[in-house]
Design a protein around this nucleic acid. Structure first.
Lengths: 335, 335
DNA sequence: CAACAAATGGCAAACGCTTGCCATGTGACG
DNA sequence: CGTCACATGGCAAGCGTTTGCCATTTGTTG
């Protein structure tokens, strides 16, 4: 198989009997060439299967028409929403979206930002694990928008965890719980910190006692360790860093004969797709992830177009979805 | 915020007091420069935060150091395995992996291949929805490897559906089922076709009757329609195109008061992460998705290095994971 | 019909990097 | 001490586009 040569702009120009610059303009500056020549050029290009070489284009113009979205763990269904939303918005803006997985690893994330940096028009960093300082530096080189992470001077869209955690605590309190345990996720997680802070504040208001365990890895695999700690502590209500962990906890609880919600109520964060078909179905705080992804892309696009001075922060509402994993406290050993 | 200028190779060269070519070689041809100068150059580069511009590099060398992995639906946990495996292999080869979502849409897929084509060193197309002809043409321009899709002349790695479907049928037959219904997915899906063909062959061998319903959309959302059809048909065993659909079916079945596996047994394909925590847990055919992703990347890398003449086809074993969604037939209305 | 403006096309210089080729310096060998 | 080979660095020519500028054609206006 001959590694066939890709048609270049010069090929098209020659075939169409015009100069390369005309071909270029036919694509990028429709008004700049005669309607008639333009059609001809486009037809010839189509016939030759010509597609402008993005590398060459980027070199001169600095624009690549590509946005990168980095997430800590593609595997986590939570990010599916962000991805979908970002894709929609990117498509609407005529941009190609590429995804990168940072494996929850700041080093990996930094490397991706460095390598991809010159090759994309901007970044959406979802749940970035990078320290503020590094984010700010990266933001100087590329337009950046953060999702569920706030850093002064960088555009970001975050979920309203204050209201969300209050909803959780109120729900639990109304079921008679007097204390709850928070199962923490990765220490670098900004939203993890916000969740914990919100929980503490809300609990103080409602007169609940709170403790924090962990950190645990925020996946199914983190479940057993967390669940065992919960059992040992005799908690009646636990709030997990995210749904994957919550589901892992419930699995382990079931394994150990602890009833949910009879013996302990479990709450997650994210409302991932599995939350509605795990067993029991999971009470969880839903975020508007698609919106978040879309807004973030829009923020990046805005920066590309106009170097806005003060990047905006947007707060998206959250909503507690009550399912079967939470219930009234059961005063242990039956009356 | 001044859109700070990125350091270029000339900046580094000037700062290090050498020629640009030396800087270039310090990075790409370690043996070609003096160990001493090389260290110096690298140090200066690091200090300036220099990262080679991939676009410029690609322009001259034709190599971008980037691989693209396209999947029909990032949201589907099935592809998580492929992605993980591909990432691992790409990292091992020193390549950056970017992901693209084709939204189950051949048009979108084609556009991505066109746009990304000149910007990457090769593609892994997972469950491609593109017609053979187009795949072959794309393969002329870029090294390509297919996952769960076979096209003559293009490298591919596929799951062993023949053995897999036989396992499913044997399992069902041994539970006393005499007939089964296949709930089809997207018509363009190659693996869907293979699954159906395998099922038919295996059923014929085992003396089972098979019918095919659908196509349904291979997500939770496809469940209700499929489940209702199953109920109407009075089937005792159904095999769904994939796990998402299977879980959606089970949800709907539960809603309509049909017991799984008491009244109907359900089997899926893929063994996604949710299969072990849905209710009941799902019997499903597991593929070695991570391996598949890794092998595919390796195949692409091999093509990049040596324009091999005959691209290989690799078949990966499959394995039926029996869980709680399948059971013995229950001769309906109780004895 | 002259004078000028607008529309349109071409030329050539970048963009940041790689690489073939040449020039110089160094050590080995006879 | 003269040759030669090798190691190392620099020069300059691209790679496929975009874009500022100029030349030409065409159309408008007085």
């Amino acid at each position: 198989m001959p590694p066939r040569k890709r048609a270049t702009i010069t090929d098209v120009a020659a075939a169409a009997g015009v100069a390369a610059s005309t071909v270029s303009r036919a694509f990028t500056r429709p008004g700049r060439v005669n309607q008639h020549t333009r059609e001809h050029v486009l037809a010839v290009a189509e016939e030759l299967g010509y597609a402008p070489n993005p590398a060459a284009r980027a070199l001169e113009s600095g624009r690549t028409g590509t946005l990168a979205l980095l997430v800590p763990d593609i595997t986590n269904p939570y990010f599916s929403g962000v991805i979908k939303g970002a894709e929609r918005a990117a498509a609407a803006a005529g941009l190609t979206l590429v995804l990168g997985d940072t494996a929850e690893n700041p080093g990996q994330e930094e490397q991706l930002v460095r390598r991809l940096g010159p090759a994309v028009d901007g970044f959406v960093l979802s749940a970035s694990r990078l320290p503020d300082e590094q984010l700010r530096r990266a933001a100087e080189l590329n337009p950046i928008a953060l999702v569920n992470r706030a850093t002064p001077g960088v555009a970001c869209v975050v979920a309203d965890f204050d209201s969300g955690t209050r909803q959780i605590v109120d729900h639990l309190a109304s079921l008679g719980h007097r204390a709850l345990v928070f199962l923490g996720g990765p220490p670098e997680s900004w939203s993890g910190a916000r969740r914990w802070a919100g929980l503490q504040a809300a609990a103080a208001r409602a007169g609940l006692e709170v403790r924090r365990f962990g950190p645990y890895v925020p996946t199914l695999g983190g479940g057993p360790a967390a669940a065992d700690a919960v059992i040992a502590a005799g908690a009646t209500a636990v709030v997990a860093h995210n749904d994957m962990l919550a589901i892992g906890v419930m699995q382990r609880l079931a394994e150990r004969g602890v009833g949910v919600p009879t013996d302990v109520s479990v709450v997650g964060f994210d409302d991932i797709v599995g939350a509605e078909f795990c067993h029991p179905t999971l009470t969880t705080l839903a975020e508007r992830t698609e919106d978040a992804g879309a807004r973030a892309v829009e923020a990046v696009v805005a920066q590309v177009l106009t170097r806005a001075s003060e990047p905006p922060t947007r707060v998206l509402p959250t909503q507690l979805v009550v399912r079967r994993s939470t219930g009234p406290v059961h005063t242990a050993p039956p009356n």
